[in-house]
Simulated assay, not measured.
Amino acid sequence: MRAAARLALIVASTALPLLASAQTQTVSALPVFNFPQSGVTFQTGDTWSANGQTFRLYGVQSCIRGTFFTNSAKVRTDCGEASVAYLAAIVRDAKPRCTAIARAGAPPVIFSVCAVHIGRNTLDLGTVLITQGFAFAATDAAGKATKFEYAVAEREASKAKRGLWAAADLPHPSKILIEAARGARPR
């Protein structure tokens, strides 16, 4: 065996156990938790707090509070409040189970994905909110959806005019947020 090959084997045999050990020490299980059924404050239709901790559904954007649409009864209604009411109703009825996937910001927000049980089906909470037309696919600053499947669900809800999509004057939150970001940038 050549000296270089022997050296490579020696380095690999000592480095691989160290790498494996480092991975098991740094990789931890993602926390899974039941959505609290009491003591919850719904901040928006995608964000809530409980026990001093803020949580947000990953990839979901609710309507923004203080933006308005005209409902089917021809009443001008706060779009953000409609999103909050729908999320609260789903949580009450379907009792989601969530998985934390990331922590960001200060104070920290825990981004989560949640599953709900409707009948015999287990469904993604974000997909339910979006397909029913009470939430939207979150986008980045360029307007690209952060979760492709949510963009597909949003497109279907829009075509079917479900939920908030039935309003001709729906204030789409991603458009509002992108415009606000463009206005905040120095020109």
Score class of each variant (00 low, 15 high):
D46E: 12
M1T: 13
R56L: 01
P31H: 06
V32M: 11
R65A: 13
L9K: 09
Q43P: 02
A15N: 09
C98H: 07
R6I: 15
F69W: 04
P186I: 15
P171V: 02
C79I: 12
Y150I: 10
F68G: 00
L9F: 15
L7M: 11
A88M: 08
I64K: 08
V152C: 05
R187G: 10
L30Y: 14
A137L: 03
E154F: 07
A167M: 08
R185C: 06
A5T: 15
I101Q: 11
L87K: 03
P107Y: 06
L18T: 04
T67M: 02
R76L: 10
T26G: 00
R155M: 09
T47W: 02
G183Y: 00
K159P: 04
A29S: 11
G45T: 02
R76V: 14
P17M: 10
G39P: 09
R2T: 15
Q53W: 07
P96F: 03
K147W: 06
K95H: 13
A20R: 09
A22W: 14
S72L: 09
L125K: 05
Q53Y: 11
F148T: 15
E149W: 07
K159Q: 13
Q43L: 12
R120M: 08
A141F: 03
D124E: 11
T122F: 05
G59Y: 08
V27I: 13
T99E: 11
L19I: 15
C79G: 07
R103Y: 13
T99L: 08
K95C: 06
D124Q: 09
L18I: 13
A4E: 12
G45K: 01
D78S: 09
Q23A: 11
T24L: 12
P96G: 10
L129E: 05
A20V: 14
Q25E: 14
A153S: 00
F148P: 07
C98L: 07
R56K: 14
L125S: 08
T70M: 01
A115Y: 07
L123D: 06
A85Q: 12
I130N: 01
Q37Y: 05
L87I: 00
L129A: 10
T41G: 04
T44L: 04
A12E: 00
P96A: 06
C98T: 01
F69Q: 02
Y86V: 09
V91T: 12
A151D: 13
L16D: 04
S28W: 05
V116S: 08
L129C: 02
A157S: 10
A138H: 02
